[in-house]
Amino acid sequence: MRHVPTVALRELRSLFVSPVAYGVLSLFAVLSGLFFSLYVAAFNAWMVQLQQFQAFDQLQELNLNDHLIGAFFDNVGMVLMFLVPGITMSLYVAEKNNGTEELLLTSPLTSWDIVLGKFAAAALFVTLLVAMAGALPGLLFFYGEPEVGKTLSGLLGTLLLGWTYVAVGAFASSLTRSQVVSFLICFVLLLVLMLLPAVADLGLAGAGDGLSAVFRWLSAGGHVQGLIQGLVDTADLVYFAVMIGSFLLLTRLTVDSVRWR
């Protein structure tokens, strides 16, 4: 496993000479900035409205964390769902198309070196995106008094969500030789992951609480919500560890299946 940094570094360098990295960075900066401004404007309008109606009780309850930052982090998670497949789509596809797969698999690298190295590279890139998004709520500290703990735990939730998406995307990329197919597989998997609670509500009503609970647990949404609301629950952290670990394991299996097909 000592070659994980070697593999990750090469991956990052290739990512940053490709236009994809800069495209994703710019798109993310524009989208997150736009959504943040919209949320700030909405929050402002709401506050003004409540003052006009003299609804002091509600005004008392209005706060930056629950009514602005939380919603914004939710939104960032949504944006990541569209952008992460773009980052991860070429992770393994490019190796197969360059013929460098043969170099990697005939070198003394272990499968974990490859799988963890590639995951680390894409996860670092997503960390950069989340840090950019985190700077925006940071601005609010100059104008108001959001809770630091709640803001940070929301940021952590968004980061873990991003890393989970990366693990799913890396797996999707290991399955195919086409970037477009890789993007689509990843996007569909993320969509399924998001829609599972809805499926549980619609199709499984009364069909057994066990399965419904499993579906609800598998979906990332509830676990992120906890963190956004400032509840750092070990169970949620375990969820992300399990999801990332499982998809890395699946990726390792597909990488090995190339060696042993």
């Binding site: 090469r10 490709s18 013929g99 460098t100 797969e101 043969e102 170099l103």
Partner: peptide, 12 residues
């Protein structure tokens, strides 16, 4: 090992 197509990263 030199495979049939040299295993190169074109961007490096």
């Amino acid at each position: 090992y030199l495979p049939e197509t040299p295993p190169l990263y074109p961007e490096m």
